[in-house]
Computed example of a mutant assay.
Amino acid sequence: MANPSSIIEDGIEYSLGNFDGTKIVYDFPKILVFLEAKGKILFGQHFKIYEEDKNVLFKLCNYYIKDQNYCEKFEMDPEKGILLSGPVGCGKTSMMKLLRYLVPHQRNYVVMPCRNIVFAFNHLGYKTIEDYGDSSNFCFDDMGVEPIGRHYGRDCNVIGEILLSRYELFLQTNLKTHATTNLSAYELEDLYGLRVRSRMKNMFNLVAFDEKIKDKRK
């Protein structure tokens, strides 16, 4: 019988904690060992978890494993999605791609660049909004820096419209939406409008990197 407190990658078993027969008692240092190993598989041997990232990662890990005590401490609602914000190059996208593997039994999500969604809209039109506004699980990457969509001469704030559609599903079915962004809450409001911004507050837990964190791509 498989041990529910461990994950096997490339033939190596990584313990994430201890299973007491009813629940997993997670161990954060062990989780970090697994995430760094998985990160090297996904992104290459240069990947590493930096000391400066561990506070953000600790919050996110407790969200993903739905640790009730820590979620309450960090004022996070496990029924909402994650909006991960931070400066360019801090590792937001990699972190959201990586954390999917921490709880493989949970429903996964696709990480999709917002600019790609807008390009699809420019080609296919409003069907794109229907496709991404449906009940599939997505993490919208680099939200807020995508161009305005244009189809047959008509402009459309594509991501804003998708968020409105997904908000209705969130109310009806608790559908989660995740996203990453380089922008502040005020900048997002300027871009998408007050109506979308108010719904985002209900849809997302905001988790933010320190603004002074270094660009890991340099």
Rank of each mutant, 00 (worst) to 15 (best):
N18G: 04
L35Q: 12
K30H: 00
H46F: 11
N174L: 00
R217G: 08
K73I: 06
C139D: 00
I41E: 04
P4Q: 01
E36V: 05
T93A: 07
C61W: 12
K40Y: 05
M200W: 01
R150A: 06
G86Q: 08
G91W: 06
P29G: 11
D10L: 06
R199S: 04
F119A: 14
L57V: 05
L84T: 06
V103I: 12
V56N: 05
D142W: 10
I24H: 07
M1E: 06
I117L: 13
M76H: 02
C61A: 13
Y167R: 14
T93R: 03
G44W: 09
S94N: 11
L169F: 01
A179D: 01
A120R: 05
I213Y: 12
L188V: 02
R150V: 11
H151T: 00
V207S: 09
Q68W: 14
P78A: 12
A185R: 03
K176D: 12
N108M: 10
L169W: 00
F43E: 14
R166F: 03
K66I: 02
D131S: 12
S198T: 10
D141I: 12
V110C: 12
G39T: 09
G11L: 05
L32S: 11
D20Y: 05
L42M: 11
S94D: 02
R166N: 03
R166W: 10
L169D: 07
L57N: 14
F121Q: 07
L171W: 03
R166M: 11
Q68P: 10
L83P: 06
D134C: 06
S15H: 05
L164Y: 04
L191I: 08
F121M: 04
L163D: 09
G11P: 09
K214W: 07
L42G: 15
P87K: 09
V33S: 00
Y132E: 10
F74K: 02
F138Y: 03
L183Q: 15
K73Q: 01
D215S: 13
G160H: 06
E51T: 15
L206M: 08
D155K: 08
H178V: 07
L206Y: 10
C71R: 00
G39F: 02
P104E: 10
Q68C: 13
L183D: 07
D155P: 14
H178K: 00
D27W: 09
N55M: 04
F28L: 10
K127V: 11
S15L: 02
G125I: 09
S85D: 01
R107P: 01
V145P: 13
C139R: 00
V103T: 15
Q106K: 09
L175D: 02
K218E: 10
K54C: 02
H178I: 08
V111W: 01
R154K: 12
F34H: 04
F170A: 06
V158T: 12
V196Y: 08
S6A: 12
K73T: 04
K59I: 13
K73C: 06
H123W: 01
M200F: 14
N174R: 10
P104A: 15
K30L: 03
E51C: 07
H105S: 13
L99I: 15
L102I: 11
G125F: 15
N122M: 06
N116E: 08
D131I: 14
A179M: 11
L124V: 08
K54G: 00
I41D: 05
I12R: 02
D77Y: 14
